[in-house]
Amino acid sequence: MGSVLRYTASRCALSQVWVPPWLVYLLIVAIAYPPNTPALGSLSLGAIVLLPISAWLCLATLNSESEQQSASMAALAGGVVTYRMLVLVSALCAALALVPFSILYALLHNAGPLPVGDVVAAVLPHGVSAAVGTTIGALVARPLIARVGFALVWSCLLVVALIAIPHLPPVRLMVELLESAHLHAGDVIVSGATTAATLVGAAIVWWASATFSRRRT
């Protein structure tokens, strides 16, 4: 497992396909986090922005490898489904690598201390955003959608829908919970359950998309 993650990270580092989405995210965080306001407000923005960024990272990771090369590595790594799942895990890791920056910047930039509970509460929506964004990328990448233009349109539509519809789980719901000033016990349970359900759902969609991609090739 680790060997495929290492290979994918090495390949993406050399071709620098992760650099643009990382830079855009860091720029947004640097510009848009309002100074001297509660950190949780900034972090909810960070979690929302991570959704399209992680979809971008995933799309870049999958589409930067040619179909032939991907097939060759998949045969070596134990099959198309296994290989694609591991590449998706690599893309998720690339998205999660941004979370510490978001939290650290909010901590430095905003007024007042940030309790550990709030940090944990902020990590969960970031993680959910990264997982959902990666799932969107998995659905719109080649060979499921061959043309980048269509992939862009579909990912934008999905991202906007997930952010704009009030109370829609998982991303919007998690962000709303984060924005509420004080988390109640019920909110914590909802937050934890939503995160767990998102991870399970994402894994199922990843597996389905990987299986379908094998059929398409």
């Binding site: 040619s66 032939q68 097939a71 060759s72 045969a75 070596l76 134990g78």
Partner: peptide, 10 residues
């Protein structure tokens, strides 16, 4: 695990 060389190695 299978050793597979595609038609176009890229």
């Amino acid at each position: 695990r299978v050793g597979y060389l595609p038609e176009r190695f890229r």
